[in-house]
């Protein structure tokens, strides 16, 4: 099999300025690499090139840049980072769009709301912890065959599908003024849970069986770190790579929490 021919474009190079840190608690530094750019190149292909040629612009031998990556199709969420200050997936970041001219500079930094593991790789465990806190699942009876699930209209399916496309990348958290870096797990349950988890609460409350746990989910959304911590900056929805209507979810859960609180006040349940 022969690889497809690509039309030859003028060879050019792009300068990558990368914020590097050898490990947690270590000092950070900038390193720059000049990377020859082929047509269709993206940030990942450039990081791959740097890994094979880790020499900085001042001629110093360095090491491959650590980063997270998976599908490279913008569907797994792994390769999220700050590119020229904007949070996004690096796989879908095409160099021709970001740095069209020879010698253009691209700045790569790790997300700032999660602890750095190394270089561009961060620890997003708190994000998954928030899904546990939200009970983001349908409490099925088990895996034995018990017939189909609840009926769903195409309209409701479309709403749930959109919410369910959340790939836990963390863009909404990076952009949120209320979401702060919390290194220690002990503080996660009191800190703002974030738009993604609020939206997942809505997703599962919308499901016929998932709704059984609606009350538990709303309890998790009351009080410190819950939905009322949202400052309504609406940055989340602007940076979501999947265009998930996060602010609608926050509004919907906000209303549900209010009703839930009033009901709890009067019934004690």
């Amino acid at each position: 099999m022969v690889p497809p021919t690509t039309e030859a474009l003028q060879a050019r190079s792009v300068r990558f300025r990368i914020k590097r840190q050898d490990g947690p608690g270590r000092p950070w530094r900038w390193e720059s690499f000049d990377v020859p750019v082929e047509p269709g190149a993206n940030v990942i292909s450039c990081l791959q090139w740097i890994a094979a040629n880790p020499r900085t612009v001042d001629g110093r031998d360095s090491s491959p840049v650590a980063y997270d990556a998976g599908c490279l199709e913008e569907v797994c969420g792994a390769c999220t980072m700050l590119i020229n200050g904007q949070v996004r997936q690096s796989c879908s970041c095409l160099i021709d769009q970001y740095a069209p001219k020879d010698g253009d500079v691209m700045r790569l930094e790790p997300m700032s709301k999660f602890p750095v593991v190394r270089d561009l790789m961060v620890d997003r465990q708190r994000l998954f912890h928030a899904l546990t806190r939200t009970k983001a699942w349908v409490p099925i009876d088990g895996t034995y065959h018990l017939g189909p699930g609840p009926q769903d209209t195409p309209q409701r399916q479309q709403v749930r599908y959109k919410l369910s496309e959340c790939m836990s990348c963390g863009c909404c958290l990076e952009a949120c003024p209320q979401y702060k870096l919390e290194e220690h797990e002990s503080r996660w349950d009191k800190a703002f849970i974030g738009a993604h988890a609020i939206s997942q609460a809505r997703l599962f409350n919308e499901h016929g069986t998932g709704n059984v746990l609606a009350s538990d989910r709303l309890d998790a959304m009351i009080g410190p770190g819950g939905v009322s911590d949202c400052g309504n900056a609406q940055n989340c929805v602007k940076v979501c790579p999947k265009d998930i209507p996060l602010t609608e979810s926050i509004a919907a859960i906000g209303r549900a929490v209010t009703i839930h609180s009033i009901r709890k006040f009067f019934t004690g349940k």
Partner: peptide
């Protein structure tokens, strides 16, 4: 398919659900 449906997979639906 039924099990996945019960788990909440948003399978595309027809007009008749």
């Amino acid at each position: 398919i039924d099990l996945l449906d019960r788990m909440g997979v948003p399978f595309n639906r027809t007009a008749e659900s």
